[in-house]
Amino acid sequence: MRAATTAARRRDGAAQSLSGRRNRIRFAWAYAFIFPQLLFFLVFTIYPIIMSYVYAFFDWSGFGPLSNFVGLENLARLMQDDQFWNAFRNSLVFIFSKTVILMPTTLLMALILNQAFFRGKVVYRTLYFLPVVTTTSIVGIIMKFIFGNENALFNETLLSLGILKEPVPWLGQAGTAMLVLILVGSWKFFGMMMVYWLAGLQSLPGDIYEAATVDGAGYWQTLRSITLPLLLPVGTVILLLTVVNSMHVFDLVKTLTNGGPYFATETVDLYIYNYAFSASGFPQIGYASAAGIVFGLTIFLLTAALGGLVKLSRDGQSAREAASAKGGI
C-alpha cells in the first residue's frame, strides 16, 4: 500500500517535472516571440512618451546636449502666445463642427443602407467609403485645385448653376477657408463612421425586431423605441473615435490651406510642427514639446470625459435590460 502510493507519488512527480520542463520551454519561446515587439514598444513608444515630457523643460534646438534646463518657462511662454490659443480654438472649431455634421448624417446613411430590402448595399458602401482610403495629403492638394482659384471647378459649377453671381475666393478668406476645411475633413471621414454605425446596427439582436413586428410596430416606432436606444452605447464609442480622429488634421491642413489665410486655419498640430521642424530658423524642440503636452492633455481630458459617457450609456443600458427582464418575467 505504502509502496504503491510512493510509486504513484514518484510518477506524479516525474509527470509534474516533465510538464514543468515543458512549461519552461514554452515560456522561453513566448518571451522570444514577444521580444521584437517589446523592444519596439520600449524604444518607440515608452521612451518617446517619457521624453516628450522631458524635452518640454529644456531650451533645446535638437542639436547638441540637453543641458539648458528652463523649468516651466516654455509653458509660461506658450500660455501667453495668442497664436497658440488661436490654433487651439481652430482645432476645437474643426473637431466640434466635423462631429456635429457627421454624427447624424452618417447614422442616417447607415440606417438607409441597413434596410433589408435595399439592394446594392456593397456598391454604395464602397463608393461612400472611397475617400477614407485615399491619401489625405493628396486629397488636400486636389481640393486646393477644386476650391482654390476664381475659375476653379467649384466656383465654375456654382456660377453656371446660378447659385453664385461672382466667384468667391474660398481659400482666401478666413471664414470660408475654415468652412472648406471642415467640409473636406467631413467628406473624407464620412465613410468610416458610416461603417462604424453599420457594424453597430448589425450587432443588434434580431429577435427584438421580430417581436416588434408581431406587436404591429411601424418603422418609425421601431426606430425610435428600439433601434436608437440600443445604439446608444455604440454611438458614444463612435463619438469618441470621431473626436480623436478630428484632432489629427495635419496632413489636410498642411496641403489644403497651410494654416492660411493669416493663420485662420492653423490647427495645433500645424503650430507645433512649425516650431519643431520649421525650415526657417532654429527648431524650438523644447517649446514645441510644451505645446505638445498641453494639446495631449486636452485630448486626454476630452477622451476621458467621452469615455465616462461611454461607460454611463453602457451602465444605463444594462440597468434598462435588467429592469425589462424583470418586468417580462
Binding site: 514577444i34 521612451y47 505638445g292 469615455g307
Partner: peptide, 29 residues
C-alpha cells in the same frame, strides 16, 4: 507566461495615457 497580463495591460494603456509630441524623440532615436 509570467508577465503576460502585465504586457497586455501596458500596451493597451499606452493608447489612453496622455502624451506629448512623441515624434520628436522618435526623430532623435
Amino acid at each position: 507566461f509570467p508577465g503576460r497580463n502585465w504586457f497586455v495591460a501596458a500596451i493597451t494603456a499606452t493608447m489612453f495615457i496622455p502624451k506629448g509630441y512623441t515624434i520628436i524623440p522618435i526623430y532623435q532615436i
